[in-house]
Computed example of a mutant assay.
Amino acid sequence: MDVLSDVVAVTRTGRPRSAHVRWHAPWGQEFTSVPGSAGFQVILQGSCWLLPPDAEPVQLGEGDVVFLPHSSGHTLTDSPGTPVTAPACGPDDHGLHDAYASDSVDRSGGGGPVTVVLCGAYQLDPSRTHPLLLTLPDLIHLPAHSDRHPELRAAVALLAAELENPRLGTDAAVPALLDTLLLYILRIWFNEQPAREGATGWAAALNDPPVTAALHAIHRDPAAPWSVAKLAAEAGLSRAPFARRFAMLIGQPPLGYLTWWRMTTAARLLRTSDAPLRSIAAQVGYTSEFAFANAFKRTHGTAPGGYRRKS
């Protein structure tokens, strides 16, 4: 798998939730911060305002996509001055509790203009959060453009159709479409980051062909006997320049990232499979179960067997 696909597969846990919600102005809805989740809002019809807790209001129009990767609380409203109703997605909420259960909901308000929103949330595992996600801003706003992001628009249209008109297979289609939507949002955001001289971090790394080639090699085959020289060959650079470039952009040396990714992959396998330790060790590049157990304990603070029993 490539690095972005792996990030989503390893970090996301449980079933993503979504809803097709119709509001009638005047309306205002608070979305509370839910630790260990990331949320999104897509405006399908009409317009509204997003009110972040510590930033200026953002006006949203039809086709706009908003992604909140760090579970930031926020409010959606037809107008910044409209009173806000009880928080959504809370344990005692009986309105948008339904709306985050892959459903279509009509929220009656006044008799004003209608706004239709596709909203949802992804459950993330904080113990496996990839550093790529940690570098994202609190709010990613992808404005609608008729001639841009056709794949994102197609995913939104398919998801909205499944939620508005459930049919045979909808329960399988919705989670797959939600994962696709998340991948498209992340891909677009990283692809559209401006290239800046001397920039570092994951946005710069994923737009740097040599480093991206090395990352893809690691994620494609984490069990391979990688060395700095072999990864440099994948990147098309000599050893020393590659190592400096990788560390500058990613924030850790190539073999440090390799070990971290191997241990993250091992943790996922321990939690999601009954494979014996020797098999998991081999899948992440260790011929010795003892060496694998030592490396795992250094990273996670507990032995693989204990980690599995607690999961």
Results as ranks from 00 to 15, higher is better:
K230Y: 08
G120Y: 00
K230T: 14
H216G: 01
A275S: 13
H130Q: 11
H70I: 01
A86G: 11
V84H: 06
H216L: 03
L181Q: 05
E234I: 07
S79K: 09
E56T: 13
Y100V: 07
T11W: 11
Q41Y: 03
L255G: 02
A25D: 08
D6R: 14
K297M: 08
D6H: 14
F40T: 03
E234S: 07
P166W: 10
L277H: 00
G201M: 04
V3E: 06
D221F: 10
P137G: 01
A214I: 02
A213L: 03
D54Y: 06
A121Y: 11
P222W: 05
W226L: 07
A205G: 08
N165Y: 13
G110C: 13
A86C: 05
T287Y: 05
T77G: 08
V42D: 07
R245N: 05
A233P: 09
Y257R: 11
S37R: 15
E164D: 15
P194E: 12
W260F: 10
V34F: 00
A9P: 00
G46C: 05
V211F: 04
L50S: 04
L258H: 01
A291P: 06
E234Y: 08
P57I: 02
P166L: 14
W261P: 00
G61C: 09
R128I: 07
P253C: 06
D125S: 10
T264D: 02
R278A: 04
T200S: 13
L255T: 10
G236E: 08
V58I: 11
L181Y: 04
T11I: 03
T302A: 10
E192G: 02
V10Y: 11
V3M: 13
P83M: 08
L4Q: 04
A282G: 15
G236A: 09
L60T: 02
T77V: 14
S5E: 10
W49S: 05
L277Q: 12
S279I: 09
P150H: 10
H130L: 04
K310Q: 07
G169V: 11
G14T: 09
Y257E: 09
L269N: 01
A223S: 15
A214V: 06
T13S: 11
F246W: 06
A267M: 14
V117Q: 07
E164V: 06
Q29M: 03
A19G: 15
A282R: 15
G61F: 05
F242R: 07
D179A: 11
Q45R: 14
Y100K: 01
P26T: 01
V211A: 03
P80A: 14
A172D: 15
H97S: 14
A235F: 08
L206R: 04
P87T: 03
S18L: 07
P83W: 02
F67Y: 15
D274Y: 12
E164F: 01
P225F: 02
P194Q: 13
G63V: 05
G251T: 12
Q41L: 03
I43S: 02
K230V: 12
P131M: 13
L136N: 05
L152I: 09
R220Y: 09
Y184T: 04
V228C: 10
A240N: 14
N294K: 13
D147Y: 11
A235C: 12
H300I: 04
A154T: 12
